[in-house]
Amino acid sequence: MKFMVVFSEGMDLSKEVLVTVKGTQTNEFGEKDTIELVTRGNYYYKNNSYYIVYNESRLSGLEGTTTSLKAEPDRVTLNRMGAAEMKQIFQEGVHNQGMYVTSCGSLEMRVLPRKVKVLLDHSGGSIDLGYDIEMGSKKLGYNELSITVKEL
């Protein structure tokens, strides 16, 4: 099964957690670049969706940006706000187009998710995304994003 969400029934949730984000970019030549960020963040459950919110760092190149992820039963929405702004929706097999806005300008960005795997419950869990990415009309490669949430 490529997409599975474990949603706990019951009360809303709000707590501080340890968030690990590992991103791997593979360009058209097969060259890989991986970064990993470990930071404190906030974890919420409300209206049948899980939310993960954390601040980016200099390591990710997005210092001054807050990232939030919303996991629903059939998709994951990534929002970045601050120094860089972007909204992308990851729903397996569905192209999503958005704008990537930075202080240097805006670029049209498009993703085609190949993998959307969500395993979250009230104690934490993971989100794993695999997707092709294009900017403008140029395919940049394949990205993998793995987000893990653990109680402190």
Score class of each variant (00 low, 15 high):
residue 32 K to Y: 12
residue 77 T to M: 05
residue 22 K to G: 00
residue 86 M to A: 09
residue 101 V to F: 11
residue 74 D to T: 01
residue 137 S to C: 03
residue 22 K to Y: 00
residue 91 Q to S: 09
residue 98 G to N: 11
residue 24 T to F: 07
residue 4 M to V: 15
residue 66 T to Y: 00
residue 116 V to L: 11
residue 44 Y to W: 08
residue 16 E to K: 15
residue 33 D to V: 08
residue 44 Y to S: 05
residue 40 R to Q: 12
residue 129 L to W: 04
residue 1 M to E: 14
residue 21 V to H: 06
residue 2 K to Y: 14
residue 123 S to F: 05
residue 110 R to E: 13
residue 127 I to W: 07
residue 85 E to P: 02
residue 34 T to N: 02
residue 103 S to N: 15
residue 122 H to F: 15
residue 96 N to W: 14
residue 107 L to D: 01
residue 96 N to K: 08
residue 19 V to T: 08
residue 141 G to L: 03
residue 91 Q to E: 14
residue 56 E to W: 12
residue 46 K to A: 12
residue 137 S to H: 07
residue 34 T to K: 06
residue 142 Y to S: 01
residue 130 G to L: 11
residue 84 A to I: 13
residue 41 G to C: 06
residue 119 L to M: 13
residue 65 T to P: 08
residue 76 V to Q: 05
residue 120 L to F: 03
residue 86 M to E: 10
residue 125 G to C: 01
residue 32 K to M: 15
residue 123 S to M: 02
residue 81 M to W: 12
residue 28 E to T: 14
residue 14 S to I: 14
residue 42 N to I: 11
residue 135 M to K: 00
residue 6 V to T: 13
residue 17 V to Y: 03
residue 37 L to Y: 11
residue 40 R to S: 04
residue 99 M to Y: 09
residue 142 Y to K: 01
residue 137 S to N: 09
residue 112 L to S: 05
residue 13 L to A: 15
residue 47 N to I: 06
residue 37 L to C: 06
residue 18 L to N: 14
residue 128 D to K: 04
residue 9 E to N: 09
residue 7 F to Q: 10
residue 152 L to S: 06
residue 53 V to L: 13
residue 54 Y to I: 09
residue 109 M to R: 00
residue 77 T to G: 00
residue 76 V to C: 04
residue 57 S to D: 10
residue 144 E to H: 04
residue 97 Q to V: 10
residue 69 L to H: 03
residue 113 P to G: 01
residue 121 D to Y: 06
residue 149 V to T: 06
residue 11 M to P: 10
residue 100 Y to F: 14
residue 49 S to A: 15
residue 52 I to Y: 05
residue 121 D to P: 01
residue 17 V to W: 01
residue 81 M to Y: 15
residue 115 K to F: 03
residue 142 Y to V: 00
residue 3 F to K: 07
residue 100 Y to T: 04
residue 92 E to T: 09
residue 43 Y to A: 07
residue 88 Q to I: 05
residue 142 Y to I: 04
residue 77 T to A: 01
residue 102 T to C: 05
residue 1 M to D: 15
residue 9 E to Q: 05
residue 116 V to C: 08
residue 45 Y to A: 13
residue 115 K to H: 02
residue 30 G to N: 09
residue 124 G to A: 12
residue 104 C to Q: 14
residue 52 I to W: 03
residue 63 E to H: 13
